[in-house]
Design a protein around this nucleic acid. Structure first.
Length: 874
RNA sequence: GCAGGGGUAGCCAAGUGGUCAACGGCGCUGGGUUUAGGACCCAGUCUCAUAGGAGUUCGUGAGUUCAAAUCUCAUCCCCUGCACCA
């Protein structure tokens, strides 16, 4: 094997040529079918890439290359999510400007990507912090505002003390900030800008089922949108009607108390003077506990002193304040049915509130008083006056209708999805194009003033630097001309990444965000590749954006991403690879040690692309050997006609690799190629044609080696834009596969013989150094002569298949009708195989002897120990 | 609790009715090469064996089939996401 291959040199060479020749640039082309292959916009951390990144991008790249070579017009762009807090914080820490910091990070990132050999169309590169990009953020902001999709509202909002800004609901995870796992998000009551995502709630939900996305992501989105159908029932408390949402109106006769959220804004209205002290004590207690651990809280509450009247039977029931009712969901108050809801049950037990069964299982006479837990299954109504005997599923409808008729309630649909809060009190983002005027209130910046530039010279301190920047703030009102102030909040960076995939279609357009024509040509994205962590953030916002822009007439499709693929995560020492955990294997070290193609082959072949993998430094050796072996094939290549057998194998390999790639089976495709390399390796003179196909098949995975091989085979074109090798089904002859299998069996037998010979200690050295290697070479040479193969095959009737043959094949014979077609052929083969066991050993040994004797003539006699025969098989 | 994904040899992992005792990689063992180490190359690696033979395997238990790692049912365990959502 050639140790002297300089992989880095080869890689640099091709990267340079790709760049200069611009072969990966695409234009709209009506003759070829378009394919939009996209990876999620990466956030530029400034920390270089590790093998986790290499895997992600290699997956996308291999698919883009495959599609491209298969005649598609592939749009495969890349850009950078460049605004955002981490950059701002890092910049402050290192005392450089975020712009400088970000630019540096982008250069680093892009450079690293080029060194992976990714086939991006870099002419479409974008960075969200450039004014020619964020100008259109502002533009869309104004359009949304015009069309009522953006509004301002004073509301309780999530505030992260570490980020020093508000957050969207989607950015709060288990009450903590999405960027700071250890930081509790606080609730503040502020006036902020909101996007009316809820206008599309129903459509966002409905269309999920039409998407070719992982089930997991789909269910996460459904969950997040959280639709539930139910009934809002009006309970009268202190002469006032209080709406209460429930999905179980069938249990209304079982309501024995009410619970209002302890955080409910109108809780005070219900607390009587007598109970005031108790309630306050309780609230204090809750506040103390939520700080600690809100996980498995016991259900607790306190009587408010007020009573509600059940509208259906006028019963008077106590109202409690409780810690297990969410203020933000539904109406912030629940009707409690302890017999049929586990939480209510626990609460009732604790405070000794009566439990009344109103639903009985059909086949039992369970008694409420004996219940150990709530009965939540279906059944028939009891204790429910005129609804007694109804099946509860029907009762839900009947009782709702009845309440509606009596104007005591109505059926409604509840969602968990809230509007998207996009104001951020930070510097490094898109300025919100709004002007505050003492007379006119807020006034949108005129479109022709866009972009409202983010000022460069600012002071970083405690507050948002924009607030202290007089130059930026000072302006005049576009309406009345009086002095006015600019809005100092910036936009959530998820706004930036909600439409970047559209901008790629027309990245240089300075008259409009994109031309409708180009969008409609390229969109939707055919294959979107990225991590599962964006399930409810980016992916939901982007879907909303698409729908909103559709209704504003900018585009003509409903969903941005037809098909989504979540790549697996690369772990090391059991943890996700990340700089902060100190467990990264960098792209650079792999590149230097083996060349990046080896790295690509490794991360793509070690497991299916969707699966997580555990990095082991040692595992990569196999991939390196594969690459080296591939290159070594070149030395034995000649422009000869392909034998039928090699042709069959080659066609089969092309077929199988192609099929695997269609379904994202990069790992399997590479395994097939690995087998193929071993196969070619066993051939003395390798037909150039076979190697040409191979070098092209290799392109999606190891593009540099692919190009290098292609060139060394005498081509002066780019492998990366050649046509994908085609296979001819007619040339695939499975007999050869079977034959090969037999041959392999023969080899394995030869090895057994060699082992046998080895057991004679006195000739060990000879056997080991001379006999073994040369013998195999000899066999493989004569083995390709047809006559010999068939002869050997005849004698080879032994091996493993025998177990299958006799028992089950005989049963087939009895019912020939039941035998599947393809098995018939197999059966015949087996029949031949079973014979001849007895005579084998003799014949075989005789043959081996011949070979060995021939062989021994070539050997350097002096290596054999003096006086010992080289072969003693007789 | 709900939803999704898993459990295959010492480890990672391919395989989703029949060329399956189960690709590949790592580790380990033996050999070659090398001044040595590394790297590289070759072979072996479930168990037993009178060594081309037999037995037992794909979380566990049952079932379907001539045939099950693969299909069905039950069950246990692990991971991931969501969750006092009324």
């Amino acid at each position: 094997m050639d140790d002297s291959i300089n992989f880095q040199k080869i890689e640099r060479k091709w990267q340079k040529r790709w760049k200069e020749s611009k072969i990966f640039q695409v234009k709209e082309n009506s003759k070829k079918k378009k394919f939009y292959n996209l990876e999620m916009l990466p956030y530029t951390s400034g920390l270089g890439l590790h093998m986790g990144h290499v895997r992600n991008y290699s997956i996308g790249d291999s698919f883009a290359r495959f599609k491209r070579m298969n005649g598609f017009n592939v749009l495969y762009p890349m850009g950078f999510d460049a605004f955002g807090l981490p950059a701002e914080n890092a910049a402050i820490k290192n005392n450089i400007h975020p712009k400088k910091y970000t630019d540096k990070a982008i250069t680093l990132y892009k450079n690293a990507m080029e060194r992976i050999g990714l086939s991006y169309d870099w002419s479409r590169e974008l960075a969200t912090c450039n004014p020619d990009y964020y100008k259109w953020n502002q533009y869309f902001f104004l359009k949304f505002l015009e069309n009522g999709l953006i509004y301002r509202k004073k509301a309780p909002v999530n505030w992260c003390p570490k980020c020093n800004t508000v957050l969207a609901n989607e950015q709060v995870i288990n009450g903590k900030c999405w960027r700071h796992e250890d930081t509790e998000v606080k609730t503040k009551y502020l006036e902020q800008w909101f996007i009316r995502t809820t206008k599309y709630t129903e459509e966002l939900l409905e269309y999920i089922d039409k998407l070719d996305w992982p089930e997991k992501i789909k269910s996460m989105q459904k969950n997040w949108i959280g639709k539930s159908e139910g009934t809002e029932i009006l309970f009268e408390i202190n002469q006032k009607k209080w709406p209460v949402f429930t999905t179980r109106p069938d249990t209304i006769y079982g309501v024995t108390f009410m619970v209002i959220s302890a955080q409910h804004q109108k809780l005070d209205e219900l607390v009587t003077k007598k109970q005031k002290k108790n309630v306050e004590k309780f609230l204090k207690k809750i506040r103390a506990t939520t700080e600690k651990d809100a996980d498995i809280l016991e259900k607790e509450g306190v009587f408010t002193g007020s009573y509600a009247i059940n509208p259906i039977n006028k019963e008077k029931i106590p109202v409690y304040a409780g810690n297990f009712v969410l203020a933000e969901y539904g109406s912030g108050m629940v009707m409690a049915v302890p017999a049929h809801d586990q939480r209510d049950f626990e609460f009732a037990k604790k405070y000794k509130i009566p439990i009344r069964t109103v639903i009985k299982p059909k086949k039992s006479d369970a008694n409420a008083q004996k219940l150990k837990k709530a009965y939540t299954q279906n059944g028939r109504l009891v204790n429910s006056e005129k609804f007694d005997g109804l099946e509860n599923s029907k009762a839900i409808k009947e009782i709702s209708k009845y309440l509606e008729r009596k104007k005591l309630g109505k059926r409604i649909v509840q969602y968990k999805l809230r509007d998207w809060l996009i104001s951020r009190q930070r510097y490094w983002g898109t300025p919100i194009p709004i002007i505050w005027c003492g007379h006119c209130g807020f006034v949108p910046s005129p479109e022709e003033d866009l972009p409202i530039l983010l000022p460069k010279n600012v002071k970083f301190g405690e507050k948002n630097p924009l607030e202290t920047n007089a130059n930026f703030i000072k302006t005049t009102c576009p309406k009345c001309g009086r002095p006015a102030r600019r809005e100092t909040d910036t936009m959530d960076t998820f706004f930036d990444s909600s439409w970047y995939y559209l901008r790629y279609c027309d990245p240089k357009n300075n008259k409009e965000p994109f031309s409708t024509e180009k969008i409609n040509h390229w969109m939707p994205v055919d294959r979107y590749i990225g991590g599962a962590e964006h399930a409810v953030l980016h992916l939901l916002y982007a879907r909303f954006f698409t729908k909103a822009l559709r209704d504003l007439g900018y585009l003509k499709f409903d969903e941005p991403f037809t098909s989504l693929f979540n790549q697996g995560i690369v772990h090391k020492n059991g943890l996700r690879m990340s700089k902060s955990k100190g467990n990264v294997v960098t792209q650079e070290e792999i590149e230097k040690k083996y060349g990046i193609d080896t790295g690509r082959i490794y991360v793509l072949s070690v497991a299916a692309p969707g699966k997580d993998i555990e990095w082991d430094d040692k595992d990569i050796g196999g991939s390196f050997r594969f690459i080296n072996k591939s290159m070594a094939l070149l030395e034995r290549s000649k422009n000869i006609k392909m034998e039928e057998k090699v042709e069959s194998k080659t066609n089969l390999v092309i077929k199988r690799v192609t099929e695997e790639m269609e379904y994202f089976g990069m790992n399997k495709a590479i395994r097939i190629l690995m087998e193929y390399v071993d196969y070619l390796y066993s051939i003395e003179i390798i037909p150039k044609k076979a190697l040409e196909s191979f070098s092209l098949l290799l392109n999606p995975f190891a593009p540099h080696i692919s190009e290098e091989m292609w060139e060394r085979l005498g081509n002066n074109t780019f492998a990366s834009i050649q046509k994908w090798p085609r296979f001819d089904e007619k040339k695939i002859n499975m007999d050869y596969e079977i034959e090969e299998q037999y041959l392999q069996d023969i080899f394995s037998d030869l090895r057994d013989v060699s082992k046998f010979v080895k057991s004679f200690k006195e000739i060990k050295i000879i056997v080991a150094s001379e006999w073994k290697n040369t013998l195999f070479k000899k066999i493989s040479v004569i083995g390709r002569k047809k006559e010999l193969i068939s002869e050997l095959m005849k004698t080879a009737g032994f091996k493993k298949q025998s177990r299958f043959t006799i028992d089950s094949a005989q049963k087939y014979m009895k019912n020939p009708g039941n035998i599947p077609e393809r098995l018939l052929g197999m059966q015949k083969e087996f029949e031949i195989l079973v014979q001849n066991q007895k005579d084998f050993e003799k014949e075989f040994k005789a043959k081996v002897n011949v070979v060995l004797e021939e062989n021994s003539k070539d050997q350097k006699a002096n290596k054999a120990a003096p006086g010992k025969p080289a072969i003693i098989l007789k």
